[in-house]
């Protein structure tokens, strides 16, 4: 199976994602003879083989779903070796770098390879990703993962410090992506690596000072249309709501607890966010525990969408620029 193709059935050796709920996913490698233990009990790997992706798997004490590894699923389940880039930013990066099948892309650093998988998915089968990482262990792990995920035809991993040693590529890339502590040190070499007909560049930085230095260096080296954006995605959970009417005719004096009475009766709205769901319910696969109210069949239930309380408010700044056709630059 391949992380960049869609697959139907599970085979031995596949990296599959065991899906418990929104925030609980676990990648495992299917190996006949192994057992996998989850909080819902265990299952045999052998039982997965031949099953369809997207099937429910009966564990001893509940159900999980087995999903194919895809760039998006990998991003939310991968083992973190570094801070990773998440799908909302990946989306904007991919679009702003004009990526499509056939694109040649340079990336540094590889990090936890969250972005790499998504880049490969977009540029395969005719494009190629050159990914550079200065941390030896990380670059080796990434290489191993690409192999396991059957995408190594479309990617080359380099263990190299591009800030000091450059990319060592010339007139090759349609697009360059930088996620480095000092991205401005790699821009001159990135310019060399971009195709003669020009291309796009993106730098991801958490801090504004990095953005400022990067933008200055891009301008100095003749990049144009330099701009910086922040892109956030806000998830809303869908909740049943039912605000009680105040009863002006009730004798509230006699109502228990005068004033504090329906403290907890009211806001069904926040219940799930703040109170952990009792263990008993969690035993069965029930996605709605994590974010949404159970939707029942009744048609008169009213639902509202409410942002989840604490969410990412910043990941990084994305700075983009264009390098124009090199032959027409005034020297």
């Amino acid at each position: 199976m391949s992380f960049c193709k869609t697959n139907d059935t599970i085979k031995e050796g596949d990296t599959v994602i065991i899906y418990f709920s929104f925030n609980q996913l676990q990648p495992i490698k299917v190996k006949r003879g192994s057992n996998h233990h989850t909080k819902y009990g265990s299952f045999k790997h052998a039982d997965l083989i031949g099953k369809k992706y997207g099937s429910r798997i009966q564990c001893t004490q509940g159900t999980v779903i087995v999903l194919q590894g895809s760039p998006e699923m990998w991003t939310i389940s991968l083992p973190h070796r570094t801070q990773i880039i998440y799908t909302p930013n990946i989306s904007v990066i991919t679009m702003q770098l004009d990526l499509k099948p056939g694109s040649i892309v340079i990336e540094s650093g590889t990090g936890s390879a969250s972005l790499s998988h998504a880049l490969i998915r977009t540029i395969f089968p005719t494009g190629h990703l050159h990914t550079f990482e200065f941390h030896l262990q990380r670059s080796e792990t990434a290489r191993k993962e690409f192999k396991e995920h059957d995408v190594s035809d479309y990617v080359t991993v380099y263990h190299r410090d591009v800030c000091s040693d450059g990319f060592g590529k010339e007139d090759l890339a349609d697009a360059v992506f930088l996620d480095l502590p000092s991205p401005w040190k790699a821009i001159e070499s990135a310019k060399t690596a971009i195709k003669r007909e020009g291309g796009r560049i993106c730098s991801f930085s958490p801090c504004i000072e990095q953005v400022q230095k990067t933008s200055l260096e891009l301008a100095r080296l003749g990049f144009v249309n330099i701009f910086t954006v922040e892109s956030l995605r806000r998830v809303l959970s869908i909740k049943k709501y039912d605000l009680p009417d105040f009863d002006f005719n009730m004798d509230w004096l006699k109502y228990k607890g005068n004033g504090q009475e329906n403290e907890n009766q009211n806001d069904q709205i926040d219940k799930n966010e703040e109170k952990p769901v009792p263990k008993k319910i969690k035993k069965n696969f029930n996605e709605s525990d994590d974010s949404d109210d159970e939707v029942d069949g009744s048609t008169d239930a009213t639902y509202t969408a409410k942002p989840i309380n604490i969410q990412p408010g910043h990941t990084g700044f994305l700075t983009f620029a264009t390098l124009l056709h090199k032959d027409f630059h005034k020297v």
């Binding site: 954006v229 922040e230 892109s231 995605r233 996605e287 969408a305």
Partner: peptide, 15 residues
């Protein structure tokens, strides 16, 4: 599964 409702937020910077 994994049904998410979301909105997106984009802001450009003058640098």
């Amino acid at each position: 599964i994994h049904i998410e409702l979301s909105d997106s937020w984009l802001r450009e910077y003058q640098v």
